[in-house]
């Protein structure tokens, strides 16, 4: 059984940017690539980045931020009243 993840979580638009990477701090350990349930992290030419449309897919779990020991990931919850809505949490 393959569970389709698209549309399985409701979101309210208008989050603004709430995750960013500091390239100078990143040591390319790859932990963020593994931990993100939604697979929103990429590595290209030795650069780690988060996909452009992450705001419409992110679960706001903060795992990427928590797992990054280099402190390269900046995370702040989205604007109040926007982002993920768990109706059956």
């Amino acid at each position: 059984m393959k569970i389709e993840l698209e549309n399985l979580t409701k979101r309210i638009l208008g989050t603004g940017n709430f995750i960013s990477v500091d390239r100078n701090k990143c040591n390319r350990c790859g932990r963020c690539l593994i931990i993100c349930i939604m697979n929103l992290w990429r590595k290209k030419d030795d650069t780690i980045y988060i996909v452009d449309d992450y705001q419409s897919k992110c679960l706001e779990c903060a795992s990427c931020y928590q797992v990054c020991e280099a402190g390269a990931i900046n995370f702040q919850y989205p604007v109040g009243g926007t982002g993920v809505v768990y109706e059956k949490g």
């Binding site: 569970i3 399985l8 679960l59 795992s63 109706e87 059956k88 949490g89």
Partner: peptide
């Protein structure tokens, strides 16, 4: 877990369908 044969059988008899995905620390 969800793909265990036993689990799939349980989903079938419960007529269960995925409704939401959540992740939290």
């Amino acid at each position: 877990v969800v793909n265990l044969k036993y689990y799939q059988r349980l989903l079938k008899i419960l007529e269960a369908k995925p409704r939401e995905l959540q992740a939290h620390l």
